[in-house]
Design a protein around this nucleic acid. Structure first.
Lengths: 129, 129
DNA sequence: GTAAAGTCTATACCTAGTATAGAGTCAACA
DNA sequence: TGTTGACTCTATACTAGGTATAGACTTTAC
């Protein structure tokens, strides 16, 4: 199949597929006579794996590490587990930050609920502090 | 005061201050004979306002809009209130996304809690799906 | 034969800065 | 007076993960 079909089947845009290839995340594939990229079912599986990882917000570098690990089936998988665990810690931390931000924004919003003039705006006054 | 002092007093790095100036977020100031930027107390106030806004995760464009609004003290402040409100909605939305991600990661982590071989790793198996 | 759709590479752009190189300025000290 | 060191200047490149374009080429359909 050509890149357009792979794009539709995988849900990744054509540019993204080419981008992953350039990042060495996705193997450069065979080319047709006219220099078109030609993919098969295994390309689709590989791309779906990458997409799954990205949906977990793993970075491209981390995904490369995972792929590298996958190529050593007899090694320990602890690095994989650690990666996921560390990500969970990071996400938890980020949620806490955003909760704090939300509280600040909420406080801010309640400083000026009605329609005033700019010079009397409670929100702007809080921002000045 | 020179940029180094402003940097220390504001907590913004020197590069960031120059970056804000280039983005027209922060007014280009007077220069000394030797072409050094010279700031005063009002520069510090302006920079602190920007920093406060950035800590709320407002974009540079949004901050520009706020500054523009601030220059019209007799206009309505509703755009300011809307901005803060919309941001709260966005942050709430982002938190929900991250909570979902966290749940997925947690499920994933529990698929392989012990130290196995890569080919038996529960996490990698889930990632293949 | 030709038009439209698809693909190719290369490049620029996005956010909000950060990091660097290479040059100039200024104050203090010998 | 010379020089050292700290500070500042501009310009440029880089970060992450793509997205968007231009201009050329290939393939398909009528």
């Amino acid at each position: 199949m050509k890149i357009g079909e792979l794009s539709k089947k995988s849900g990744c845009s054509i540019q993204t597929i080419r981008f992953y290839e350039k990042q060495d995340l996705f193997e450069a594939c065979n080319r047709s006579e006219g220099n078109y990229r030609i993919y098969d079912a295994s390309s689709l599986r590989a791309l779906r794996f990458i997409k799954q990882c990205r949906s977990l917000d793993l970075t491209i570098i981390e995904i490369k590490q995972l792929l590298d690990t996958k190529n050593n089936p007899d090694k320990s998988c602890s690095s994989v587990n650690n990666l996921i665990h560390q990500h969970m810690v990071d996400v938890t931390h980020r949620i806490a930050e955003l909760e704090e931000l939300k509280a600040t924004l909420s406080e801010m919003a309640s400083a000026c609920t009605d329609d005033r003039k700019v010079k009397e705006c409670g929100v702007l006054q809080l921002l000045e502090e």
